[in-house]
Design a protein around this nucleic acid. Structure first.
Lengths: 339, 339
DNA sequence: TACCAAAATACAATCGATTGTATTTTTTAA
DNA sequence: TTAAAAAATACAATCGATTGTATTTTGGTA
């Protein structure tokens, strides 16, 4: 068995022609006659030729690869986005590098560095909860690598973003609780460095205001929204003897942690406390009672973000203006909020 | 702002030395004196030099990248494995390419082709449910790319595998149901092309045999184990008036689909029917009653598989013999099986 | 001071494909 | 038939880093 990898030079030698002609034939250039092309393709097939992508990329300084960075691949919303990204990217002939920051700024920086080093053609990113400085994003700009934020963005101007209307999501969730009769609604929010959580909170406030309900700062609790955060803060509420009849969670996972704790401590959901989450994780259909939540169109978002990124990668007619797309979200009513 | 990328030649020119010396300095070779190294490093820093990984990889014909192929990144078990893979790989200085086949053979082939084309140094794979021919794996062997199967492997000899003891898992699950008093146990299995499902079934059979319970072929139902498969097959059982007091599911997702259907149709879990799943998805702790299941050490498996792969990539002392590691699994008792 | 070994650095080929330019071949038209 | 135009192919540089070999420099010793 031959160990040596077949190159265009091997094909050229075998046919007694120049390697540049082989290269052009394999790239279907019009500068090579059909007859020669067929001959070359046949010989390439025969020798089992496979293009060396590394060499090709080096010469062309293009990788046909985009990087997508998410906090965690296991979150349903993010894996949906990734699916949308892959579908669109593959159709356009691009490969996708999937990376997870695990909500750690250090890893996020490391990932961006690696993507830059590997000369990806563009990057899609949803930032971690720890991301407060944006130097690593600057490195993308310095290297002229197009960047699109999706869902979790930085609040900086002149960037491309594909976002959910978090304000509306927060508003809808809260209004729904009010419609169900809640008058004393707690909001479990995420790290306030992230725009999405700020906006969900704004929506919450706005709904209260529209219904002439008082906003109380102590009714807003911020955490990293993991399951144990939900649980611990539920405990704190109960222990402190807080009175409330509804909770709007900025994500489903924290909601579920809290629901388990509340249920185990004699709180009836939805009768005593109505609950609404955010994200529509599959788990929210399984918990009892099923969790009312805000559905985010993940696959669609992935597609739109990728389309936007590819447009910037190709920018045939000079640089494009940065653009922000806001997508709608959807309240899904289930039993956890049915008074 | 300068657009031109800084290369070692720029550094060499700036210092009036040769680029080979720059290269050696940046690689910390002993052939360059400390004084020169410092000078070069300083200048590199000053000019904002970033190594062109493409060029480096081409020359060294090494990419320091491994590919990991899973059916779906959103499955908790697989994302745990990926986490283990990443931890181990990063420590060893390798990058990880994450790919999902979405259970489709065509995509799996495509992915393997891409990995080969991109000259990854090694591949970890858990095959799709459709994977019955292994030509694409052969392509890895032809290109001398080390390969390790994890969890879902092919039953072919001379391969590296890191597996769960599925036979024992199937046995433990079934024995547990028997211990809880079940005498008429259904088994929901997966596609019989996959070794893991064959082995879980074997474990099921063996447990029946050890307890002098009859094995009935009609008590085994194979499907792709999606949520709706669980639901539909539960419906079929009820509609056909089957009598049973326990079900062992080859995964949690199908179990949950079935549990929802059964509960909605008046079947009491665990009193009427005790249930055991497989995989310990997070969702199984949330459903009511909580699902008894077999826990698989995903992170650990990812680490072990990566260690094995890296050993094969490095194979300093000639080729290594293929190796199969079998890992233990763990029954986690919850309420769904408590009679 | 002169010489030699060892250390440091320079030279040049290479990885494999791409691409602008030059050359050869073919075709067209006079 | 021949010159010019067009088409096909060959030549050679290039992408940026690495590495074996050659050369120069340094330091030690006689």
């Amino acid at each position: 068995m031959e160990k040596h990898k077949i190159t265009i030079h091997d094909i050229a030698r075998a046919l007694n022609i120049d390697s540049s002609t082989v290269s052009r034939a394999l790239n279907n250039s019009s500068r090579v006659t059909e007859k020669t092309k067929t001959k070359i393709l046949k010989k390439a097939e025969e020798l089992g030729y496979q293009r060396n992508v590394l060499a090709s990329n080096l010469r062309k300084s293009v990788t046909n690869t985009i990087g997508v960075v998410v906090p965690r691949i296991s979150r349903h919303f993010f894996s949906s986005v990734i699916q949308g990204v892959e579908e669109t990217a593959y159709l356009a002939g691009y490969n996708v590098l999937i990376c997870q920051s695990l909500e750690q700024l250090e890893r996020e920086k490391q990932i961006v560095d690696t993507l830059v080093a590997n000369r990806v053609d563009g990057v899609l990113i949803s930032i971690s909860m720890e991301t407060t400085d944006y130097k690593h994003m600057q490195s993308l700009k310095n290297n002229d690598i197009p960047l699109v934020f999706f869902d979790r963005h930085c609040g900086i101007p002149d960037t491309n973003n594909v976002l959910i209307d978090d304000f509306k999501g927060g508003f809808d969730a809260t209004q729904h609780l009010i419609d169900e009769g809640c008058r004393n609604i707690i909001h479990f929010s995420g790290p306030q460095v992230l725009e999405i959580y700020k906006n969900r909170l704004k929506g919450y406030k706005e709904a209260l205001k529209m219904n002439d309900l008082p906003f109380k700062a102590e009714n807003v609790i911020s955490s990293r929204l993991m399951e144990h955060d939900g649980k611990e803060n539920a405990k704190r509420l109960l222990d402190a003897g807080f009175s409330f009849d509804g909770i709007f969670f900025a994500n489903d996972v924290a909601a579920i942690g809290a629901m388990k704790y509340l249920t185990n401590h004699g709180v009836k959901i939805p009768d005593d406390v109505a609950i609404v989450g955010f994200s529509n994780e599959p788990i929210s259909r399984v918990i009892n009672p099923a969790l009312t939540t805000i559905d985010q169109p993940g696959i669609e978002m992935g597609k739109i973000a990728t389309d936007l990124l590819l447009k910037h990668i190709k920018k045939q007619n000079g640089p494009l203006k940065p653009q922000t797309v806001i997508m709608d979200s959807n309240l899904i009513e289930r039993l956890s909020s049915k008074k």
